[in-house]
Amino acid sequence: MTQLLKAEGVSKSFGGLKAVSDFDFYIDNGSLVGLIGPNGAGKTTAFNLITGVYQPTKGNIEFDSNSIVGLKPYQITQRGIARTFQNIRLFSELSVLDNVKIAYHSHVKYGLVEAVLRLGRYFGEEKRVEERSMELLRIFKLDDKAQEIAKNLPYGAQRRLEIARALAAQPKLLLLDEPAAGMNPQETQELMEMIRWIRKEFGLTILLIEHDMSLVMGICERIYVLEYGIIIANGTPGEIKKNPEVIRAYLGGEA
């Protein structure tokens, strides 16, 4: 299996604090990988390094066999990595449909002049974007709320909309930062099904951060465990459950 994402010796320091150190990490094409760890372990920092929000102090990150270190977040998205946020960041005053349409930005094929004079590909492309956005909304059961303002959606629906919006950017790798945060067990169960389904349907590779162990253990094929910025374990859910280092990190003491 080819490796879609590979990080080698990546470190990130904020002043004297080493948020992530010597991070070695790979994700196979088509796999579903989890990243877990106690609060403050550096999981979101790892996400921000992959998506270009932070630049690594040291080390290299390769995506699709090309280094992505030094690229801006929008360039990384254009190469095929899309993400959701731990604290939801929707375009909250816009309609649900517009939220998704915006994410098609890098795939719209008309220029500024065509847009301003409404010539050439403008109408065809706009129609295509609207149709495909509605399709995505249907998949996430949001199509009946397409004209609603995003901030008025219930919490679970906002989480789903964030995933729909990330998919509209047509990524190869999808990063989900705590997708089940704030969901009840029933919603979490539905989300699990949804993640499995979109992965198959869109041929995606997925990396997710999650605190809900039932979700992580239920769907991930491989799990990385992070503690104090260092990867302490890596393996299948079965192996991780039995790993003494992981048990120590979560429960404390001499296990």
Binding site: K72, A82, R83, I102, H105
Partner: peptide, 8 residues
């Protein structure tokens, strides 16, 4: 931040 993450 979200705009940048959406490829803008």
């Amino acid at each position: 931040i979200a705009a940048e993450a959406m490829g803008i």
